[in-house]
Design a protein around this nucleic acid. Structure first.
Length: 703
DNA sequence: GCGCCGTCAATTTG
DNA sequence: CCAAATTGACGGCG
């Protein structure tokens, strides 16, 4: 499922942007109307791409004949820069170094070779990153311990006897019996990849997909014999199948995990190799030093259960483990290990936590990088018993971590303290939540003029489109209710969980509509209610304007709709659209790279191909050139964090579905939101654009 | 000395 | 508030 959209792709810091007149924007009266036209902030000529190969001739693309150009990988006419693969090898890295999730610089994989995604031999599913790049901080430390059960590395993958779990002994619990390793030919979904970041993301996405599915099953079973803890169950399934990254403990950074990454379950920390204990707050290992072996602490989770003090962002007072309200803590296990890490000056990974305000019971874990234990002491806790205390100090020169959260909190508490604000609400009151327009990069005063609309403008009046079938559910639709016609339309299950997350990608989703008898609180009315997240349109360093969120976003969260005007599909005979920088269009038939709900095989369910199904390509495009919403600012990336999903809610014309964006993975606050525009080769006079996404998987071109 | 168990600590989650 | 749940450390035994 590829699609294309052109966008501002010219490097803005190339000097040309200084032509920007800055006198155009006038302050506007803020009377709120349903549809509102923004005053011109910018001459509309601005933002038009003049696309050229760096240092060379303008990019010229030879159009293959025919509208149905077969495949991007087997072109019959080679353009000057041929295939995306070739382009990516020839193209020098342009623009900024890739940014980590929170916008801070991130280490670039120096291996510039083209990456081929191959499918793993089954079982060798996730490639644990080997220790060749092992960060050693303690002199002659090795990250292997005699006492530590040392998991194997990729090269020597031990294959367990099928069905022999760790507890196959006399007292095997019955539940374990079902958790058999998936046999070879049953599971070939997870691509083998050299990129540790990709390994980590695949593990996390699979975990959450399984978790959501287990929760969905649980919710429809009316609590009877359900999966009480879908998170643990999903974790066990992945563990049993060795579907994890970075097996084996290590001191220091974990490949593929970046500072600022967020997690929603302890199990996730475990699966990516960040923090092994599924519950304990202190992880430690035995390492070999020049003067012998020693057991040192390697990571801590500051979960708030203890009397940890959150003061300075670079400082953490961590309480030891053990003891309780009527027992002294002892200098053993984690406490002892922290003491040793103090003396040996070992790097400690710190995972801090925050309350999830979108889900008050929840907690978010944030990887905050490496700390060192500076001092330790014993003090009396609140109940009068001894508690060990460790003062950890964050190492300098690391990307911003938890400080981003504190900064955002400050902005929320005191909006006046936010710098770089151009407009408090680019939607001028139309959206549920104001969308701030900010520029902290240069002095450009805003994107070119457009009309902010929250709905798609159809070619035909809505009333002429076929209405949806309606359900007769009282108050709200519930899973497991066999009489709900809307659940039936979605294949039997409601597509969203009770807390409002998409469970899995589908060819199309039928939400409840105006004629359904359920209320607006029905969970099957998720996307029709508009945005629920605090977004921000911001100036990127090199990709024009972009979209990001001040709130953390969990995988499966509804982001927004792609609104604009429906137009005929951009093709050979649509000249106008070629100049349109804001087109949403499906480019190809399917997209193997995005099987968001992959992994049903792990639960013994048949695999489904949701990416295209029997539905043909979308017959239309949406132009957000003249009118649109925040979605028009979402830039392209070859490693996106957002995908689109077809949804119906106000009519049943499957030829005109709504395009709704959802989060592919957990997205930390302030990370730019991106989706994959696809690569539309051979359609009309259309020219793909040079990609600046910086992903190791970058195709080099998009659009 | 090695590997296989069984037990235990830890504490998250609903 | 409490119970159920899981991994890995640890220690004993063969």
């Amino acid at each position: 499922m590829e699609f294309r959209k052109a966008h501002i792709g010219v490097a803005m810091d190339s000097g040309q942007s200084n032509h920007t007149p800055n006198s155009t924007r006038e302050s506007e009266p803020l009377d709120v109307q349903p549809l509102r036209t923004l005053a011109p902030m910018f001459p509309s000529s601005y933002g038009v791409n003049t696309f050229s190969v760096p240092g060379g001739a303008p990019f010229i693309y030879v159009t293959p004949s025919g509208p149905n150009f077969p495949s991007p990988t087997a072109p019959t006419h080679l353009p000057p820069f041929a295939t995306p693969q070739q382009a990516s090898t020839m193209r020098p890295r342009v623009g900024q170094p890739p940014a980590s999730a929170n916008g801070a610089p991130q280490s670039v994989n120096s291996n510039g070779s083209v990456r081929h995604t191959t499918y793993a031999t089954p079982l060798a599913t996730v490639i644990p990153v080997d220790d060749d790049s092992e960060p050693i901080t303690g002199g002659h430390t090795t990250a292997s311990g005699r006492q530590t059960k040392q998991p194997m590395h990729s090269s020597s993958h031990k294959i367990r006897k099928s069905g022999t779990g760790s507890s196959a002994g006399s007292k095997a619990k019955p539940s374990k019996k079902r958790l058999q390793r998936i046999r070879n030919n049953d599971f070939a979904l997870v691509p083998s990849c050299q990129d540790p970041r990709e390994s980590v993301e695949i593990v996390l996405m699979t975990f959450d997909a399984l978790r959501r599915r287990l929760l969905q099953q649980d919710e429809s079973k009316e609590g009877k014999d359900g999966n009480r803890r879908p998170d643990l169950k999903a974790g066990t399934v992945l563990m049993t199948n060795d579907l994890r990254a970075n097996m084996g403990k290590r001191i220091g950074a974990v490949p593929g995990v970046e500072i600022g990454d967020i997690f929603y379950f302890r199990m996730e920390l475990c699966l990516v190799g960040l923090h092994a204990p599924s519950m304990g707050g202190i992880d430690y290992m035995t390492s070999t030093f020049e003067n012998g072996d020693d057991t040192v602490a390697i990571s801590v989770v500051s979960a708030g259960g203890y009397e940890n003090e959150e003061g300075d962002v670079d400082e953490l007072i961590y309480s030891g483990q053990g003891g309780n309200t009527n027992v002294d803590q002892k200098l053993e296990r984690g406490n002892l290990a922290l003491e040793r890490s103090l003396h040996r000056s070992i790097d400690i990974r710190v995972i801090r936590s925050a309350k999830d305000y979108t889900c008050p019971t929840g907690k978010i874990y944030i990887y905050d990088g490496l700390y060192k234990v500076q001092e330790s002491w014993v003090e009396k806790g609140k109940t009068g018993f001894n508690v060990f205390k460790y003062k950890l100090l964050r190492k300098p020169d690391q990307p911003v971590g938890i400080a981003t959260w504190k900064k955002i909190q400050k902005w929320k508490d005191n909006p006046g303290s936010r710098g770089g604000i151009i407009l408090r609400d680019i939607s001028l009151g139309i959206e549920n939540i104001p969308v701030c327009l900010v520029n902290e990069v240069d002095n450009e005063k805003g994107p070119s003029h457009f009309e902010y609309v929250t709905k798609v403008k159809y070619l035909k009046p809505l009333s002429s489109l076929k209405p949806l079938e309606c359900c007769k559910c009282l108050t709200v639709c519930l899973p497991g209710d066999g009489s709900c016609t809307c659940a039936h339309a979605n294949g039997g299950n409601l597509p969203y969980s009770s807390s409002g997350f998409l469970v899995s990608r589908k060819p199309i989703i039928y939400e409840c509509g105006a004629t359904c008898s359920c209320s607006i609180n029905c969970r099957n009315r998720l996307t029709q209610k508009g945005i629920t997240i605090q977004f921000e349109v911001f100036k990127t360093p090199n990709k024009g304007w972009g979209l990001r969120s001040l709130d953390p976003i969990r995988a499966g969260t509804f982001i927004c709709e792609y609104t604009g005007e429906l137009v005929e599909k951009v093709g050979l005979d649509n000249e106008d659209a070629e100049d349109d920088d804001y087109i949403f269009q499906e480019a190809g038939a399917d997209d193997k790279a995005l099987k968001w709900n992959y992994g049903p095989e792990l639960l013994g369910e048949p695999s489904v191909d949701s990416s295209n199904g029997s539905r043909g390509p979308l017959p239309f495009s949406i132009s957000a050139n003249k009118m649109g919403n925040i979605s028009r600012f979402i830039n392209h990336s070859c490693s996106p964090n957002v995908f689109w999903q077809q949804v119906l809610h106000d009519h049943s014309d499957e030829g005109n579905p709504h395009i709704m964006f959802f989060a592919i993975k957990h997205i930390p606050p302030m990370a730019e939101l991106t989706y994959d525009y696809g690569l539309n080769i051979g359609v009309g006079s259309h020219m793909p654009k040079q990609c600046l996404c910086g992903s190791p998987k970058c195709r080099g071109l998009f659009g």
